[in-house]
């Protein structure tokens, strides 16, 4: 299990460095998803399967889609179509695909060796029942505060992102034109 951990951490470090050094935002996003998947594998083998699933679903699934939407809304230039044609060239996707393949092999190996080693190890698995028991037991006030934070985030994003119509007086409008 230790060698699995080291391989996953190498994948995470490499893909994170690639995120910071890319020029194309979509390529950086691809490497960021690989980094999140590698961290999710580390969560899984350290006995936290619930947050490993949450990491894939919420981070790599929802937040990265928000990023992709923003990039699509920003790239509305005339050269965006030809840039889109070379967005997924062979050199762009082959390295993330190989990294994802490494993570997939690790995950399959962990699944098949799961039953054999679970009895003898000293690391116990903390499943979703324990996490939710703690979440709605002692942390229930923080859960409600998080709900308020999400609500205010949604309302704030709506108000900030709304396209405001600038209305000037006609003298000011002439001065601004």
């Amino acid at each position: 299990m230790t060698i699995i951990f080291y391989i996953a951490s190498l994948v995470a470090l490499f893909s994170t460095v690639m995120v910071v050094t890319r020029k194309n935002a979509v390529h950086a996003l691809l490497y960021l998803i690989v980094s999140l998947l590698a961290v999710s594998v580390i969560f899984f083998i350290s006995g936290a399967p619930f947050v490993a699933a949450l990491e894939v679903i919420v981070y790599a699934g929802a937040i990265m889609v928000l990023f992709i939407f923003a990039i699509m809304m920003l790239n509305l230039g005339k050269d965006s179509t030809e840039r889109e044609s070379q967005l997924m060239s062979f050199g762009a996707w082959i390295i993330p695909a190989v990294l994802c393949l490494i993570l997939l092999c690790e995950l399959i190996y962990v699944f098949y060796s799961y039953k054999g080693t679970s009895g003898s190890g000293s690391l116990q698995v903390i499943d979703a029942a324990q996490v939710s028991g703690s979440l709605f037991g002692g942390y229930v006030l923080a859960v409600e505060l998080t709900g308020m934070l999400l609500m205010s985030g949604i309302v704030g994003a709506y108000h900030i992102g709304k396209e405001k119509k600038r209305e000037y007086h006609r003298y000011l409008q002439q001065a601004n034109d």
Partner: peptide
Amino acid sequence: LIFILAMAAAEVAVGLAL
């Protein structure tokens, strides 16, 4: 980590709107 996830979601929504 669940709290960090929720906070990151709210932060990304507001940040992308900005």
